[in-house]
Design a binder for these strands. Structure first.
Lengths: 153, 153
DNA sequence: ATCCCTGCAAATCGTTTGCAAGAGC
DNA sequence: GCTCTTGCAAACGATTTGCAGGGAT
């Protein structure tokens, strides 16, 4: 869908600024740095990867700041957490990703991605009735991938 | 789907024994106790809940043993991890699952459950074509729950 | 006798928080 | 000046591991 061009990033930046303003928070240096780094990332990434990426570029952000800003980005709807049963949380930004889901292999933990088809909207009324404000969703299949299935059983 | 009758449990137990034998591990007391407790559990459960449940019944298993056996069960394909972006891992057994989904609050991490409506079957052909053998699925919404949303913007 | 299992206590690791100094409005 | 931000170090909580004793085969 959207390419990661300047225009899309500006839109996301505006969304972030808007969210921050609304929450009485500021567009601080740490938020700038991490926002940029996140926008430069592709696919999924972890907090630790951001920390390292920033350190490598001599961008001055501490680990706690990374976590704090990730939390902001999450609430602002700029990124989302992907649902892996893993110790590290994985994130990805929303803007340049077609909504997609994951099918994860219970053996090798590898996963397949596949596109969203909007069927999830069936659930929206239910959640809205509960006063739950939806930021995003992910469908997560469990099973055994081709490679693992071929090995045995 | 299947009811948790003796037959199904026996099949799972056999699967577990088979896995253990194949791995050069024994059907020890700790594994017995935790296997049984897991089969008795409904919905999702955490390692901590198992520890407590066992303690309450005066079943003698230490925390490390619970984790060790959970790992065995995971590898054996008896249980799986459910996808929460949470610090605690959640598990549920595979054999008696009622398909359902979750909506989780990014602030308090509480979640709402809601039933499956079979719309996910739209995705099956795609995954099957990839040779991915589906064991189950979970749709995971994230957002802000009513309580958290009311506290402030 | 050997190998596996287990509990204890200590270690790990990702993440969070208290606090005091610094920066922006 | 008040408020938000940040880094540091310490705290935290779930999970893991080293090790020594006990059991099973």
């Amino acid at each position: 869908m959207g390419k990661s061009n300047a225009h899309t990033i500006d839109r996301e930046r505006a969304r972030f600024s808007g969210f921050l303003a609304k929450s009485g928070k500021r567009v601080s240096q740490g938020r700038e740095v991490i926002f940029n780094q996140v926008m430069r990332s592709h696919g999924h990434f972890t907090a630790e990867e951001l920390v390292k990426a920033c350190a490598q570029k001599k961008l001055d952000v501490s680990r706690p700041t990374v976590f704090r800003v990730l939390h902001d980005l999450l609430e602002a709807g700029i990124i989302r957490e992907t649902a892996f049963g893993d110790k590290h949380r994985h994130f990805e930004h929303v803007y340049d990703e077609k909504p997609h889901h994951h099918a994860q292999c219970v053996r090798c933990h590898g996963f397949i991605e596949f596109p969203d088809r909007k069927e999830d909207e069936v659930y929206h009324p239910f959640l809205e009735k509960q006063g739950f404000k939806i930021l995003g969703h992910e469908m997560h299949f469990y099973g055994i991938c081709k490679a693992c299935g071929n090995k045995e059983s």
